[in-house]
Write a protein that binds this DNA or RNA. Structure first.
Lengths: 198, 198
DNA sequence: TGTACATCAGTGAACGCGCGTTCACTGATGTAC
DNA sequence: TGTACATCAGTGAACGCGCGTTCACTGATGTAC
């Protein structure tokens, strides 16, 4: 073979990584195969040796994007003292850094409505990534509650944070953006501290 | 003149209405001028007699979409007894109807991240529409708190509801979608009932 | 050890198509004389 | 009252461009003999 044993797998992984960033930054519809492959230092024709279609790449990129975010958040949480973990999570997710850098941020906050219009493979990828983040949140919620109740609360907290980051990004008003992030922070603490059960 | 006095204004309003629905359904990038004008029963060339660019239409459509949603929600709220107004609002926003019909639903839930990538005119339109919905929520929150505190809480509740609807639309799993809507409903009640102030 | 061949990641031209935008034109009407 | 003209919403061809996808080809390598 012309290239090393892992060459093709490495190229593929590089395309997925670049796509995960570009899709979040410009939207799935805003990124063409040609421009994507050029970013990877390749020509567009080679794309179909790696993926059967753009949709397949989107599913992979969604998976990869959630993986990056989950790994980053898990690290932030692990570095904090147990009692500070939820706070560390909120600080990371609701940070000005996150608001300002769609391309490295949460896939949900950058792409959710656009992915809602796509096929089942992409949606399946989204669901898996979402549940990963939700599990991460459920693990750092105060003790108590059934696993289902913990997951449901984590899911709602995630919806709130994701929505707040989107609003902060869309308003073009630094004060209102800051209010959206700060408000979500406060309500997330309240929601986490609510007693369990009826 | 060939047409009635209000003919042009009516045609313009029709284009905006159709755009407001199509953009929410297919995404701003997913709708071309040609297809939009065809939906209005016109040819694409006439578009630029009404709008200087597609971006200008997007700003108008965002305004119109929020107007529709605000009017609908205001009606739902007005039809309920005062003590039931917040519940009526949540029932409408978190309904299966809303999840299933992006094209007639909240602009934020359908387009927020895509609008975050657009210019200041669109973002200004978004901010105005957002504040309209937020004011509507602030008005039906339990008494108490400063106007700013009420607005901030309404903003966060809106972020939570918007995020929940987006997640419910994106997961392709009816149970998880229902859990997202139900969880947001529960947490929204808790958030609304929280005591005011420090 | 040297030569012929198979492999295959990547190339780049080409497919049909739709994009946003421009512009010379149409044709039904109201107005001027 | 009848005719010529101005108005202008809408038409449709055309602009250059990028889209997703296909495919015959390149050329450096490993393998077979």
């Amino acid at each position: 073979m012309r290239y090393g044993r892992n060459h093709k797998a490495e190229t593929r992984a590089r395309i997925v990584d670049i796509a995960a960033a570009r899709f979040r930054r410009d939207g799935v519809n805003g990124v063409g195969i040609q421009s994507l492959m050029a970013d990877a230092g390749l020509t567009h024709g080679g794309f179909y040796a790696h993926f059967p279609s753009k949709d397949h790449l989107v599913a992979e990129a969604v998976r990869a994007g959630f993986e990056q975010t989950a790994a980053f958040l898990a690290r932030m949480v692990a570095e904090a003292a147990p009692a500070e973990r939820f706070r560390a999570f909120l600080d990371a997710y609701l940070s000005e850094q996150h608001r300002a850098h769609m391309e490295r941020g949460c896939v949900g906050a950058a792409l959710a409505p656009e992915l809602a219009r796509m096929g089942p493979a992409v949606k399946g990828s989204f669901k898996a990534g979402l549940l990963r983040i939700v599990d991460l949140i459920a693990d750092i919620l105060p003790d108590g509650g059934t696993p289902d109740a913990r997951r449901d609360r984590a899911l709602t907290i995630f919806a709130m944070l994701m929505g707040a980051v989107q609003l902060a990004r869309t308003v073009d008003d630094p004060d209102l953006a800051a209010a959206a992030l700060a408000g979500a922070r406060e309500q997330a603490f309240s929601a986490a501290a609510m007693p369990w059960g009826r």
